[in-house]
Nucleic acid binder design. Sequence first.
DNA 1: AAAAGTTAATTAAACGTTTGTTTAATTTAA
DNA 2: TTAAATTAAACAAACGTTTAATTAACTTTT
Lengths: 205, 205
Amino acid sequence: MKDKRQLIMEATLFLFAEKGYEGTSIRDIAEKANVNVAMVNYYFGSKEKLFENIVKLKSSTTRLQLDEIASNKSLTSIEKVEMVIDSFIERLFTHRVFHRLIHQELILNQREALQCSIVDNLLPNASIIKQVIETGIKKGEFKKVDVESTIATLIGTINQILLSKKMCNRLMGKPDDYVPYEDAKFKKRVSVHLKQLMHAHLSNK
Amino acid sequence: MKDKRQLIMEATLFLFAEKGYEGTSIRDIAEKANVNVAMVNYYFGSKEKLFENIVKLKSSTTRLQLDEIASNKSLTSIEKVEMVIDSFIERLFTHRVFHRLIHQELILNQREALQCSIVDNLLPNASIIKQVIETGIKKGEFKKVDVESTIATLIGTINQILLSKKMCNRLMGKPDDYVPYEDAKFKKRVSVHLKQLMHAHLSNK
DNA sequence: AAAAGTTAATTAAACGTTTGTTTAATTTAA
DNA sequence: TTAAATTAAACAAACGTTTAATTAACTTTT
């Protein structure tokens, strides 16, 4: 049987992403994790500390793939961008529950400290892409685009698709009960779109 | 002196967008609007109905400009896209507080009915853009792109910039206390980026 | 190996607040 | 005089958290 700490964190992650921080009660969490209410405060001290624990744990595993791509010297800039796109899509789609949770916190302006730690954890990823694009521009492989806005487009497109299932399905012409995030075809579609988009936007053919 | 109904709705809009639905109490609202707690339920019946009232009121004023652009026959498709971009940026930047609020609701999966009415109100705008792009493709002015994904890029880019000030500033290389949304230069920057992007992505030069 | 002792894990119940909402009384306006 | 607007106070329910008692899991001692 699983560690209760872990059971609680998994249940919390799921419920927070589904119903938000304020919308989820400790009793909800305890029920979902099949533990006594008191266990949550026993292991984590408080609801807010439980939240911080989850964010820290989940954030610690990030950023490895991106670094690898950026530092690979046998790739052209556009190849790197394409790999970054696939890496991003794969990562965000897989961790979409957590992704939705941290974006709820970003949109909300409460819990300043937590928001800072989220931004600090997300930004290095953006910086790697930034570096890739800037290098491409210096080498003359890319046009002189607005690098920061281009990153906003990359991340924003994926977020637009990822953060609201209902909106995504309606926008992409799918039925309401369709679950796009587990469909490999759908992932491929987003990947192809972003690669075409970035190629047209960046490449100095 | 202003109508109390309106005072309550304005205070609610501000607080909901700032602290979320669950994070805002009726007492918070009453204090901000300088009215008695009982006034909220007296005028609106319940917290949830108050929410619905705000969404309906704010949504009713949408969609007029976009229709005008789409049906203007003296414009080329790319000109229409450019005008849609500016119209979108202007609109979302101006109503960014409300915009943040409804996106909180979209990301959360509670309050199904409210989510539906939000999607129903946002989607027609997307459909107009869709129609513009599809017409451009049929006329041969545009490449055969993934129309739905292209719209996700358009909206997603603006959302990425609009929904979190902290993330926006860090991403765009601005100091933390900078307020991008009231800076005309910043709006211009986003507009220029999106137009360049869409031109490269769509145009069949 | 059994018993006793010690710590950790787990529980049901209660704590004091805060929540959205309602009541019943009072003031204001028509 | 009548209806609408406004108020302070109270309502029950739900909240995060704590308590005090009990069980389980190890250690140590015999």
